[in-house]
C-alpha cells in the first residue's frame, strides 16, 4: 500500500461522553475502502475529523504525496471532500448545487461540465432536470445528487457518509459501480460508510470501528 497517496492521523475523536477513538487512515491510489461499525461508534466523527470540519482533526495530513499538515485547511478540504450524511442542498436549482464548488477560489482550473452532470444523474437514477429546484428531490435522490456533485468535482479523495441512504437496491448498485469507475483511474480514492453486506464484499478493503479502535476486517 502506498502510504504517501493519502494519510490522515492520528486523530483523537471523542465518542459519547468519555471514550476516545484514536485513528489513522491510509488510502492507496485507486482504492475503494468501506468504513463500517455500529451506530454511534464514531464513523461520522472520524470522517469529519479527516475533512477537518470538527474540533478534532489529524495532526499529519498527506494527499497526493504532499504533506499538507501545516497548510491551509480550506485547501486540504478542496482535495479531501466530505459528502455529509444528510446530503444538504443549497436553496437553488440542481445545476447550481452541482456547479458551485467549481466557482470556489481553491478549486483552481476545474470546469463544470453540464453534459457530464446530466449523464451521471441518469446513471444514478435521477430523472430531474438541471433547472429543477433541488428542494423538490426525494430523500434518496438528494443523497445520490450529492454523490454526483462529489464525483463531478473529482477530488483526489472522496469521503462519503452513507451516500446511498433512501435508495433502492438497484440504485445502490448503480451508484456503487459509479464509485468503482471513479477510483479505477488510479489517482483517486474513496472512503465510504456503508452497511449493506453485499456492497461491503465488493470493496477493496473494509475498515471497522470496534471498541473505539479502527481495525481492518
Amino acid at each position: 500500500m502506498n502510504k504517501e497517496f493519502f494519510f490522515c492521523g492520528p486523530a483523537r475523536i471523542p465518542v459519547g461522553d468519555r471514550l476516545v477513538l484514536e485513528a489513522e487512515v491510509t488510502l492507496g491510489p485507486g482504492e475503494l475502502v468501506v468504513l463500517t461499525g455500529q451506530s454511534g461508534s464514531g464513523k461520522t466523527s472520524l470522517l469529519k475529523a479527516i475533512a477537518a470540519i470538527s474540533s478534532a482533526w489529524c495532526e499529519k495530513r498527506i494527499v497526493l504525496g504532499r504533506d499538507m499538515s501545516s497548510g491551509s485547511l480550506p485547501v486540504w478540504r478542496s482535495r479531501v471532500v466530505l459528502l455529509a450524511q444528510d446530503a444538504p442542498m443549497l436553496r437553488d436549482t440542481l445545476e447550481h448545487n452541482l456547479s458551485f464548488p467549481f466557482h470556489l477560489k481553491n478549486t483552481g482550473k476545474k470546469v463544470f461540465e453540464k453534459e457530464k452532470a446530466e449523464s451521471l444523474l441518469r446513471k444514478m437514477g435521477i430523472s430531474a432536470s438541471l433547472q429543477q429546484d433541488a428542494g423538490s428531490l426525494s430523500g434518496g435522490e438528494r443523497h445520490r445528487a450529492a454523490l454526483v456533485r462529489g464525483i463531478l468535482f473529482d477530488p483526489p479523495v472522496l469521503l462519503a457518509d452513507e451516500p446511498f441512504s433512501g435508495s433502492d437496491p438497484e440504485n445502490k448498485a448503480a451508484c456503487f459501480n459509479v464509485l468503482r469507475e471513479h477510483v479505477k483511474r488510479g489517482d483517486r480514492a474513496v472512503l465510504v460508510v456503508l452497511h449493506d453486506r453485499e456492497l461491503l464484499e465488493k470493496a477493496d478493503r473494509i475498515l471497522m470501528i470496534r471498541e473505539n479502535r479502527l481495525v481492518a476486517v
Binding site: P101, L104, K105
Partner: peptide, 13 residues
C-alpha cells in the same frame, strides 16, 4: 448551518 458547511467541505474560504 448545513448549507454553510456544504460550502466549507468543498474548500470554501
Amino acid at each position: 448551518r448545513e448549507q454553510i458547511e456544504l460550502l466549507v467541505v468543498f474548500g470554501a474560504s
